[in-house]
Simulated assay, not measured.
Amino acid sequence: MGDRQHRLADHRSGHGRPQQPLPPDLHPALTAETCMPPMRWALGQRVMSARRLLETSDRSIEQIAAATGFGAGANLRHIFRRRTGFTPTAYRRSNAAQGAR
């Protein structure tokens, strides 16, 4: 595995700071591996993290937004709904209803 692949693997596994931007020389490697632009991939990772927190914690939407790199709850609500079709609150409620069965 070349230096770029190692650096990309480190970045993807979180060995860097969570909000650290992807170095420009790694863009082609990430795009080739994921078949999507780096920003789309990063947003998808943030949405997945938000989903996990909505499923497993009782943190507020604002706290989850801050923890997952969205900054503000409004940003999380907008992108989460656009990506999943649910508001974060509706997603949490739906997940809680399924877990109670």
Rank of each mutant, 00 (worst) to 15 (best):
M1K: 08
G2W: 09
Q5G: 07
Q5R: 11
H6W: 12
R7T: 06
R7G: 05
A9L: 15
D10Q: 11
D10M: 14
H11K: 10
G14R: 08
H15D: 07
R17L: 15
R17P: 12
P18L: 05
P18G: 08
Q20N: 09
P21Y: 08
L22P: 08
D25E: 07
L26G: 00
P28V: 02
P28Q: 01
T31Q: 11
T31K: 11
T31I: 09
C35D: 08
C35Y: 02
P38M: 00
M39Q: 04
M39Y: 08
R40A: 09
R40V: 11
R40N: 03
W41T: 03
L43P: 05
G44P: 02
Q45Y: 12
Q45R: 14
V47W: 02
V47R: 00
S49E: 04
S49I: 09
S49A: 15
A50F: 15
A50M: 08
R51D: 01
L53T: 13
S57Y: 11
S57W: 11
D58G: 12
D58F: 13
D58Y: 13
R59K: 12
R59M: 15
R59I: 10
S60I: 12
I61Y: 03
I61D: 02
I61C: 02
I61N: 00
Q63N: 10
I64L: 03
I64M: 01
A65L: 05
A66Y: 02
F70I: 01
F70K: 01
F70T: 05
G71E: 02
G71R: 01
G71K: 06
G71W: 03
A72E: 02
A74C: 10
N75M: 08
H78M: 05
I79R: 01
I79F: 10
F80C: 02
R83H: 14
T84Y: 01
T84D: 04
F86A: 04
F86K: 04
P88R: 04
P88S: 05
T89R: 12
T89H: 09
R92K: 14
R92F: 13
R93M: 13
R93Y: 13
Q98W: 12
G99A: 15
